[in-house]
Design a protein around this nucleic acid. Structure first.
Lengths: 202, 202
DNA sequence: CAAAAAGTGGGTTGTCCAATCCAGAATCGG
DNA sequence: CCGATTCTGGATTGGACAACCCACTTTTTG
């Protein structure tokens, strides 16, 4: 493991990316290693050269998707300490779902739902991904709170925002329309806004 | 199909119940027909006597779980037109999750997540289950709105409540603690409460 | 350049599981 | 009581797929 040449690391990444893509599109159990192999443009025993078994690959995929999701939102995360920033973040998420034609749901959340009841290790990996996500949201709300602009417990608000997002994504995924996500996020952000202290409102 | 004796119908029900249980506990793909057969206390070819294939059984399970979920909440549904009723409903849901030790998530939602990307027929069945659920919530909020007690679009609020519930359930399932569900529901209900017109507040 | 690592391409094994078939017994409904 | 239905218990088929192995070539790195 200590030894991975540049090329080796690149191949490993290709495998993880291909697996992530397939697992996102069809679900974990429907994504066969043969599919992954073909999608990664890799031959025969290469997957087993980098991963002990499918479980190890799955864990790598969870890590990868966590990074991807957080990285995707990174530009917005710094601005979650204002209603403008929060609304822009909302728009980014909605726009992404629209581009995906409402397929796949949340890259982390849908993995979570699949593994929660039969894969404790993977469940914990997803849980820690959610934790990082929650903390990114919390940072913005906490900043507002500490500046005296926001009433109420920012930790609870952050958790509620993440829950609204996840629920909205699930309904959007199942109904194949963005409305549930839009309404869920708009409503929870309206609630945040209603908790702004008078002085902070535009 | 037209002909189902009392005993036949009972056996069919036993199969569906056993399948629902197993799919809830382990997920659809992990619940094998052999498991279902054993759990239902039924022999050999009986499953295929009542269901064309696993897909048909899955659809029956989705129907069954939809009924079960709605029936479970039926006592609360009539009272969703007041904050008291809404809070009681919240308590029932939280209490149920606590009893389940936060396992399984939403009986409908977790099925939905599993089938969304590779089973359009099942996805639609889940979607229609969600629709009925959403309408039950909507009925209460609409009543409040029509009595002039509630500001804002009750349809949107109902959708947001369902999304908060689903997101809370998912996070609760993955983190194995009830807090996310509690916070998600409390927050959205706080928001509903904040939309009460002054005259309606207790 | 030499050793290590990466990679090829194919084969193989074992398991799991959905789906089908059957012959006969028990049970039910008219 | 007679025909239809339900049910038993087992066998079997066919396919999918994870996991493992191997002989050999190519590439990278120190």
């Amino acid at each position: 493991m200590g030894s991975l040449t540049r090329k080796g690391a690149a191949t490993r990444s290709r495998i993880v990316e291909a697996a992530a893509q397939l697992m996102y599109e069809r679900g974990v159990s429907e994504a066969t290693l043969e599919d992954v192999r073909a999608a990664a443009g890799v031959s025969g025993s290469q997957i087993y050269h980098y991963f002990a078994d499918k479980q190890a690959l799955l864990l790598a995929v969870i890590e990868y998707q966590t990074e991807a999701v957080l990285e995707f939102q990174a530009p917005q995360f710094g601005r979650l300490d204002s209603m403008d920033g929060l609304r822009q973040w909302r728009d980014t998420l909605v726009e992404f779902q629209r581009r995906m034609q409402c397929r796949g749901g949340c890259p982390i959340g849908s993995l979570g739902g699949e593994v929660a009841e039969n894969n404790p290790e993977a469940r914990l990996a997803v849980a820690s991904g959610f934790l990082r996500w929650e903390q990114a949201i919390r940072a913005g709300l906490t900043a507002m709170h500490e500046r005296g602009e926001l009433d109420g417990d920012p930790d609870d608000l952050a958790l509620a925002v993440l829950a609204a997002l996840q629920g909205g994504l699930l309904l959007t995924q199942i109904q194949r329309q963005v409305k549930p996500l839009e309404v869920a996020l708009d409503t929870i952000l309206d609630h945040v806004e209603s908790r702004l202290v008078a002085a902070a409102r535009g």
